[in-house]
Nucleic acid binder design. Structure first.
Lengths: 225, 225
DNA sequence: AAATAATTTTAGCTCTGTCTAATATTACGA
DNA sequence: TCGTAATATTAGACAGAGCTAAAATTATTT
């Protein structure tokens, strides 16, 4: 109450907020999880966790990790909205390729204003998902309920549609695009091998794909209607 | 020789380079000139001048000001190109108003890549001037020769066309737009008063405008064909 | 040519955000 | 449950970029 946050958090603070949001499932984000995601040292993360708490953006308990406050979450979602709208713009209006939009958006999201964001949303026709299938938070931060699950958590015989690809690595994305494993693609799961987590799935053209555990975790699917 | 500059200068360094470029006519930029333009203290400017020299982007002689090296100029022009293309995009595609594009572009120019810039140029059809009439440097840094002069430097009786409005203040721009004093507008100069620098000019609709010295300096004109 | 005004520079701080090395804590496996 | 491995934190540095106050230099004016 009171404590009206007038100033925009810095790009760094924003990056940490997003990382905490993305890393912490429902609980708290670990130091190492955030450090790995942002490619910074653990010490830097500990330091920032304390600062985020000081700014009222996160709750931090040493050795227990950090979780966002309402304000921290709102800020993170604002950045996520910007990021995903910008990705959509880059792909649809500037001719960027699917695997390259993430990196450019990563820098732009810290430079654009809310006005820019909303005008962009208007130009794009208020899309609900970005090019990778990730939901775009509404301007009030609302997110549609997630109805997808990773391919790694499906069962043989199931029929699905790829709803989302959750991976930032351009090399991985290029590869998946080459295989046609992009949002919208229908798949039938042939095998989910417990031993090594390899998932074998057949696409609409009858082509079979064997995907290692990390890839199978990156591909989210929804049950086919 | 050697010394290939791989890393992008920081946003701050870029701002100073632009300020030096804009402030220094043909000679060197003064500490105060840059300080005023960037709204920072003179001490900060002195400090940055030394750093720019260290980076090989400027030549600095204490008490004599700073001038850009070839590399510094190239970097400044790269930012100016980005800035002016972004302004054009904001106006033409996102519906921003004339007086608001500058501020948004000021932040975006530091976040955008060369790839983004060139794709944007393509989308916009490679415009030669931005919404304020300022020339957009080519990607190799080339600028068309300036054939305009400030309204303050004209003579009574002359017939001109507004070619450019050189002012960043939204209040000033809003006012001028209200008067129709924007690039393309034809004017006939009635009086250039030596005493106080007030210029009186009549527009196409026969409306007469009395402009104080600072405004008259902001409006650049070209002889009417 | 002095005296005053304006501009610059220096010195010393501050804050953000990063790092490494050393230390502490927690988790896990035997 | 005890010892090792994995995680976290602390301590201490450092670079970038800004500031104020004091000192120095240059410009202007009488």
């Amino acid at each position: 109450m009171g404590n009206l946050a007038v100033t925009e958090p810095s790009a760094s603070v924003g990056d940490y907020l997003k990382a905490v949001w993305e890393t912490a499932g429902s609980g708290a984000a670990s130091t190492k999880g955030v450090a790995d995601r942002l490619s910074v040292s653990s010490a830097s993360v500990t330091n920032m966790f304390a600062r985020l708490q000081g700014m009222g953006l996160a709750l931090y308990e040493p050795y227990r990790g950090a979780s966002l406050t309402r304000r921290g979450r709102a800020e993170a979602l604002r950045l996520v909205r910007r990021h995903r709208l910008i990705e959509t713009f880059l792909l649809e209006h500037l001719g960027y390729s699917w695997e390259d939009v993430h990196e450019e958006a990563e820098r732009l999201e810290h430079a654009v204003s809310d006005e820019f964001t909303e005008r962009l949303a208007e130009l794009l026709g208020h899309p609900e998902r970005d090019p990778h299938g990730a939901p775009i938070p509404a301007s009030d931060g609302a997110l549609p309920p997630e109805d997808s699950r990773p391919l790694s958590g499906t069962q043989a015989g199931g029929r699905f549609v790829v709803s989302r690809v959750e991976n930032r690595d351009p090399a991985v994305l290029t590869y998946l695009r080459g295989l046609g494993l992009v949002p919208g693609r229908a798949l039938r799961v042939r095998e989910v091998r417990a031993l090594d987590g390899v998932v074998t799935a057949e696409d609409e053209d009858g082509v079979s794909h064997a995907l290692g555990a990390p890839l199978a975790r990156s591909i989210l699917v929804r049950h086919r209607a």
